[in-house]
């Protein structure tokens, strides 16, 4: 655990030394802020609003934005270490490959948690301004889902970053896989006479919008995102092992 924490701490600090992380944060806040403001305007102009306000107006678009931002966060994690030669340093230090991969993931995860935590300002602002305030339970559910989705995005990103020495190759490969997993993989669910359920289950999108973002925390959805995270980290571990043996 100690090695994981040492690597995670360095990664977390590195993000705040990099302009890329600030650009990602800025874009996220600008777009989410705009969407939030538009939503708020639309809601306040509707005198027949039946549903209480909640955080889905933030978490929904945020998860969509993170789908495109996460590859930028993960692309350099291991591929850049390989390009600059520092991977040799880490692979000859007394740490296990899985500790390295997990530490990298944890550093990125903590950075994204910080970013996500900052977006809580929007729902809490609405909560303070309205009576009876936002639906806290549904907000919590959305954010739990958001955190699990981001964990899975990052897991996949770290795994792919370990496969490449070029960070742009890692970026586009991660983006490609996330787009397939989010938008396309669920498509055959209603088209295939047999096995459609499998594609339905693999659909990343439905586990969030169909579960967490509706206020429902299901074990199936949690297991799904945790499994994807683990699969990503396992891929990273195998990729590093392959580098050693090739």
């Amino acid at each position: 655990m100690r090695n994981i924490w040492t690597i995670a701490k360095r990664e977390y600090t590195t993000y705040f030394n990099s302009p890329l992380a600030y650009v990602v944060m800025l874009i996220l806040f600008a777009v989410i802020g705009l969407i939030f403001a538009l939503n708020l305007l639309s809601v306040t102009n509707n005198p027949f609003l039946a549903q209480p306000l909640d955080a889905t107006m933030v978490a929904g678009p945020l998860v969509f934005m993170l789908l495109f931002c996460t590859p930028a966060i993960t692309m350099r994690l291991i591929s850049d270490e390989s390009r600059t030669g520092t991977l040799e340093l880490l692979l000859t230090a007394p740490i296990r490959d899985w500790e390295l991969v997990t530490g990298k993931w944890l550093g990125a995860f903590l950075f994204m948690l910080t970013t996500i935590a900052l977006t809580l300002i929007f729902p809490f602002w609405v909560h303070g301004m309205t009576d009876p305030g936002i639906d806290i339970a549904r907000t919590a559910s959305s954010y739990v889902g958001l955190i699990l989705v981001v964990a899975a995005f990052l897991g996949i990103g770290v795994g792919i970053s370990a496969l490449f020495s070029n960070q742009f190759a890692a970026f586009f490969a991660t983006m490609g896989i996330l787009v397939v997993m989010w938008f396309l993989i669920g498509a055959p669910a209603n088209l295939l006479p047999v096995g459609g359920e499998l594609f339905g289950y693999l659909d990343m999108n439905s586990h969030f919008y169909g579960g967490f973002n509706r206020g429902a925390i299901n074990l199936t959805d949690i297991v799904y995102y945790v499994s994807l995270t683990a699969l990503g980290l396992f891929t990273g571990n195998i990729a590093i092992d392959y580098r050693r043996w090739k």
């Binding site: 360095r10 600059t84 030669g85 520092t86 991977l87 040799e88 000859t92 230090a93 007394p94």
Partner: peptide, 17 residues
Amino acid sequence: VRKRVGYLPETVPLYTD
């Protein structure tokens, strides 16, 4: 082995930041 060995690779691996 890695605990007991000090290694300087040919390309010095450093974090410039």
